[in-house]
């Protein structure tokens, strides 16, 4: 693959649940822990609010990686939401893998409100992984492409 790793900045969409991971992301900000600006966070009430449709749409619109963050199993504010997430996303990610969106472009990660450092570390790691994979061209709708 001919991707210049220095130049290529992947576009990452991160869905974060309001109660744990969004707060964890805030905490990493409060503690001034850096992670790349190409990560853009969308706040959802619970990780289980993320419809597979949203993930597909992100890839279709040119995202290079999608990550879902929620409370640790057992800690979901709504008790069971993240269990749904875990099962749903396992299915979706393997289907995406089949379609050619590599398994490493998608991730589910549990980050609590107290884990600012984990949030930053997770994002750094995810960005590095997706950077190595290069641009996502599989699902991308060419009509959405910037000229």
């Amino acid at each position: 693959m001919q991707v210049n790793e220095k130049e290529f900045k992947p576009l990452i969409v991160a869905f974060c649940c309001n109660w744990c991971s969004y707060a964890g992301a805030d905490l990493s900000g409060t503690n001034r822990l850096n992670y790349p600006a190409n990560v853009k966070i969308i706040r959802v009430p619970c990780s289980c609010r993320v419809n597979p449709m949203f993930v597909l749409r992100a890839f279709q619109r040119g995202a290079d990686g999608v990550i879902l963050c929620g409370c640790h199993p057992g800690d979901c504010h709504y008790t069971t939401g993240n269990y749904y997430t875990r099962r749903r996303m396992t299915l979706l990610f393997s289907m995406l893998d089949y379609l050619g969106i590599e398994r490493d472009r998608t991730r589910v990660e549990w980050v609590s409100a107290a884990e600012g450092a984990k949030f930053a570390a997770t994002m750094n790691d995810f960005v590095a992984t997706v950077t190595r994979l290069g641009e996502n061209k599989r699902l991308e709708d060419l009509r959405c492409k910037k000229q």
Binding site: M53, R57, A58
Partner: peptide, 17 residues
């Protein structure tokens, strides 16, 4: 879901991408 509707979240995804 009110306040976090399918179309609202899709619009956010679109704007970001």
């Amino acid at each position: 879901l009110n306040g976090f509707s399918n179309s609202q979240i899709m619009a956010e995804v679109d704007a970001i991408c």
